[in-house]
Every structure is written in C-alpha cells, then in structure tokens.
Design a protein around this nucleic acid. Structure first.
Lengths: 207, 207
DNA sequence: TGGTGTGAACGGCTTCACAGCT
DNA sequence: AGCTGTGAAGCCGTTCACACCA
C-alpha cells in the first residue's frame, strides 16, 4: 500500500496519535473521538481527522475511532507492524542515555547493536548490549539492521553516516550538530539539541 | 527592536547559520556568500537571503556577508548577546548527558543549575554542578534563571513545568514524551526523541 | 560582473464548513 | 443528533526572477 500527497507534518504527528492510542487501549478505552484525542495531545480535532483521512479514514461517523483499530492502522502506515531494529553508533554520554531510553519500546523499535571507536568501551556491556568496534559496522547488512543512530562528535558524523549507508542502512537519526550529506534514497532526520535551546531566548520578552 | 511576520522556520534556522558563522570566523574567514554558506549547511542560497532579509539584510551586494557581522546580528536577533542561563530538572541518563553536552557553549548558553527529586542524587556533583532538591525550584527567580530543561519521566513532566513557571521560567525545553500545558506567555519546545525514530521506517521502502 | 534584497508566484499545510454516515 | 470525512478557502513559507548596488 502506498499513499501519495501525505504531508510530512502528518507523518510526524502519527506517532503521537499512536502512542496515545496505545495508552488508551491499555486503559481499556474502546473508542475515542477526535475531540477527546485532540484535547489530550494539544492539537485541533480537525487536524487529527484530516491527518487520518489521508489514509482512507477509519473512524465511525457519529461515534469516533475504535482504539484498537487506530493502533493497528497507524502501526501499519508507519511500518511499525514488525519490530524495527536500529544500530547505535557512539556510546558516550548521549549514546548511553539513548540506549537506556525507555520510550522506543512503545513503537516496537529495538536498538539491536551498539558501536564505538574507543577500544576501552568495546567489549563492555551497556544496557544488556555488548559494545562493538565501529570497524564491524559492515556486519549490519547480514543482521538485517537497516536504521542507524549517530551519537558521535560532529567531526566524525559524516564518516559514520557513510559507513552506515555502505552497510545497507536506509534511514538515520542523527544527533551530531551538523548537516550530513547522503544519497537521496537515504532518509536522515537530525536532532540538533543545542539548536532548540538556542531558539528559546528569542521568544522570551526581554526585561 | 521587534520584528514582525518572521516565520518560525526562519528562527529555527538562525542558530544553524550562527554556529557556522562562528566556525568560519574562528577559521579566519572574513566574508561568506549565501551560496557558500548554503552548500555548507544543505539549504538553498535563496532561503538564507530571505531569512536574513527579514531582519533588514546585512550583507554587501556583489560581495557577501561579513562573517563577524553575521555573528553579531544573529546573536542579537536571537537574544543570545548575553549569557543565557537554564535550569535542568532530572539528572537521570538523559539529564546527565545534557549536562555534559558540549554544544550549548557555542550559543552562550549555560546550564546554571541542576535539580532532581531523588535524595540520593541531591548534593552529589554532576559536571561541576551540585544537584539540588526539586523543592528548591522556587529559588530560580532570584538567581535570574529564566529557562528550564525538563528531563524527567513523562508522568512527572507537567508538575515540573508548573513549578518552573511558578518560579518565573519563561521558556522550557521539554524532553518528556508528552504534551505540556502552559500559559500562552510561556514558550515550550518539546523534543520527543522516540517520535523521530518512529517516523523513519515510513521512509524506508519495504523489501 | 557578481551577489544581495525583495515583491510576486507558487506550493503545501491548516482551517473551515458542511456533506454524509450511524 | 453526533462525529467523521473532505473539498475549498486561506495562510504560511519557499522559490523564483529580477531590480539594485558594490
């Protein structure tokens, strides 16, 4: 199934809906209206309806959305209906925090391997994973790991990205504060933490 | 000085330009054209010119932008021309990583205080800062710290946000994976890490 | 000539109003 | 009656073309 003309912004919001729908289903809620969901998430009801309508609409008029249905549909759209494996590169402060991060589980995402260039870290365990040498990045293909998370210093990031792509990785989450050049077929999302904090003072009225 | 009708997207890009301009000035580069800058950052030259033109335009036609000028103008626009202090709440894995994060320095941002609810952490040093009890959040006002960083579990996030705002904080960077309700005068930016990773499989063509 | 600055065209996302089901 | 689904309107941001200036 392929969907055309879906705004990227819609894709970004789907995981939010998904996570909430999962929580609701855990709470034995069977059905939710766009209005209820919207108030829980801080968005507008029509935004939710529009977003979901891109994929055919799977609510019931007059009633709302079946929660189980919502979960399974969004999982399928986001291709999260099978466990997705990612490799983490860089087990420094940030990398270790990502490994320990509990939030991935709700999306059936698994960090299945961790790499570092520092020989002192290689072989040690971190959160149940044995840290491997970056030289072994090439083994990702046969291990069917097709996503990468970059948590290395910025001057190493481009090389790591190149290696990940050589190893068959098709999507990268990049925490290094720099632009990374990749072939068009590869998707990169950069989370540049300092950037966001740097924006904040702009919005603070000066005294 | 106040500027109207500036897209939020432009504000998000300014720190990128700023960081690069600083790097260039450190490398003794005196002048840079929008084209050069664009190729370094993976954006288009028009985008850069348009973004800067919202603030009056401070380039030289036929030449480019004076690097020092670029730095001081963007610093002023983003109100980063004085050192800005932020308080971190939550010194777990992610919080500790943020404390150790080197990237803030380039924006004259300082994490000036760290708090946790766990008595075992309170009093201990983390990256040169003594961890304080969250009960002391109220002291932020007199210490002139007006930004907060939330790195606590999601069920504690809203309460912490409320406390931060009560303590006079006007802008919040939130790492908890949930929507936080705040008065309109307060700016919140949420970085929901798992969200980004959850988007990636959508862009990976299934085999 | 070369590169900035900017009004205007374009495109994409959000908002809206209401048609259509239950 | 109530809530979803959706074409249309409106808005915001990006792209473009070109005027302007060194």
């Amino acid at each position: 199934m392929r969907y055309y003309r879906v705004p990227d912004e819609t894709i970004k919001r789907l995981p939010i809906y998904l996570r909430r729908a999962i929580r609701l289903s855990e709470g034995q809620v069977k059905c939710v209206s766009s209005k209820e969901l919207a108030s829980l998430l801080g968005v507008t009801p029509w935004q939710i309806r529009k977003d979901l309508s891109y994929f055919g609409g799977f609510g019931t008029r007059g009633v709302g959305y079946n929660v189980e249905n919502l979960v399974s549909h969004i999982r399928e759209i986001l291709r999260l209906d099978v466990v997705r494996k990612a490799a983490l590169v860089g087990v420094g402060n940030l990398g270790s925090a990502i490994l320990a991060f509990p939030g991935f589980r709700s999306y059936w995402l698994e960090i299945a391997a961790a790499f570092d260039i520092d020989k002192r870290k290689v072989g040690k365990k971190r959160n149940g994973l044995v840290v491997e040498d970056v030289a072994l990045l090439g083994t990702l293909k046969e291990r069917r790991i097709d996503m990468g998370i970059i948590a290395v210093p910025d001057d190493a990031a481009q090389n790591i990205a190149d290696d990940l792509i050589k190893a068959g990785v098709k999507a990268i989450l990049n925490f290094a504060p720099r632009y990374i050049e990749v072939p068009k077929r590869v998707k990169v999302i950069t989370i540049d933490i300092a950037l966001y904090l740097a924006c904040l003072p702009y919005y603070v009225p000066s005294k």
